[in-house]
């Protein structure tokens, strides 16, 4: 919370999280063997990059006072279709073009449901998540895991490509963050997005095209989900559709909330995504080295997310007098 005392002003959620990340990093570095080895550090960054790309998309939507629960579903589905097309002998470019159209279409579908049909973003994307996955899995895909075919050599090469000794997915993450940062900070739609998230009615009254903006934010999150899927697929050389049932979506929400992008909208930015992603990346890596089973990791992450939501609720309390009826 902003305060007049300069010392307290430093302790925003962002700096607290950054401090926690540093402390956690230091703690793991001392306690765990091989944590600070260059290979492991690269691992951390790498594991964070897919999550970070997703979180960047989620962050954009959340800043506009929305949420996109269909990101993981879209990520899985678009890449799965792409790989299926490649297996069926399509060229890389035509498959990519088709999937790009599908991705934008899915984003438009979400955006229209929220902006024009007036459905709350939570429910619209919850429904579209189930529908999109259900439709593609039952009508198009034939198996759960789809591999990159040998014929798509360029995709396989991307997985091994290095730029400045960094894997490509890390580069993509950094590029996404940088572009999003510039757009949010200095472009007109970016500023409008903040205004809209901060006070929707006021933004609408002053003539900001709120509906197209909502649609655009959902298209952006869909495209970033696809990008994250590609990044994940080229490094794993496959796409596992069961990812939909995993806790990945909650990790994304966790990164956004932990990083300090308030769920009530209009706050935070890409810096928060990076900080949140770093903390979660360090945490996940440490827990994996500690050999905690997956289900325990999920419990810990969920408890942290609950704590973050409680904290978010205390820092950005909902105003009883102005909160909208049915705003759940």
């Amino acid at each position: 919370m902003p305060s007049n005392r300069p010392l307290l002003r430093i302790f925003t959620q962002e700096t607290i999280v950054l401090l926690m990340a540093v402390v956690l990093f230091a703690g793991f570095a001392v306690a765990l063997d091989g944590f600070t080895a260059p290979a492991n550090l690269l691992n951390i960054v790498r594991s964070v990059s897919v999550l970070g790309i997703l979180a960047a998309g989620m962050g954009i939507v959340v800043i506009g006072r929305g949420i996109d629960l269909s990101m993981v579903s879209i990520m899985v589905v678009t890449v799965a279709i792409q790989l299926q097309l490649l297996q069926a002998g399509w060229s890389l470019w035509s498959a990519t073009a088709i999937v790009a159209v599908i991705t934008v279409g899915l984003g438009l579908m979400n955006g229209f449901m929220v902006a024009y049909a007036g459905v709350s973003a939570l429910f619209a994307t919850l429904a579209s998540s189930a529908f999109v996955f259900g439709f593609v899995r039952s009508q198009i895909l034939t198996q759960d895991v789809i591999y990159i075919p040998e014929t798509a050599g360029s995709l396989l090469w991307l997985g091994k490509a290095r730029l400045f000794d960094l894997p490509l997915d890390v580069i993509v993450f950094l590029a996404v963050v940088l572009i999003a940062l510039v757009l949010l900070r200095w472009s007109r739609p970016g500023r409008f997005l903040y205004l809209m998230g901060d006070n929707f009615q006021a933004a609408r009254t002053m003539g900001i095209p709120v509906r197209p903006l909502i649609v655009a934010s959902f298209v952006a999150s869909a495209v970033l989900a696809w990008l994250a899927g590609i990044a994940s697929a080229v490094s794993l050389q496959s796409m596992n559709t069961r990812l939909v049932n995993s806790a990945l979506l909650y990790d994304v929400v966790l990164v956004v909330v932990i990083g300090g992008i308030g769920l009530s909208g209009g706050k935070g930015g890409m810096r928060n995504v990076v900080v949140g992603a770093l903390l979660i990346g360090i945490l996940l890596n440490g827990m994996t080295i500690l050999n905690l089973p997956n289900i325990h990791q999920n419990l810990i992450k969920a408890l942290i997310l609950l704590g973050a939501i409680i904290l978010d609720g205390q820092l950005n309390p909902r105003d009883e007098q102005t909160s909208q009826q049915g705003d759940i």
Binding site: G118, L126, F131, F135, S138
Partner: peptide, 27 residues
């Protein structure tokens, strides 16, 4: 005899349709 994902497909479709209908009707 519908395959994997069908129930999600139907539930998602029903949910979206019902919510849109509900929102429009209330409005």
């Amino acid at each position: 005899g519908a395959g994997t994902g069908t129930s999600q497909l139907i539930v998602g479709l029903l949910l979206a349709a019902a919510i849109v209908l509900d929102v429009r009707w209330l409005k």
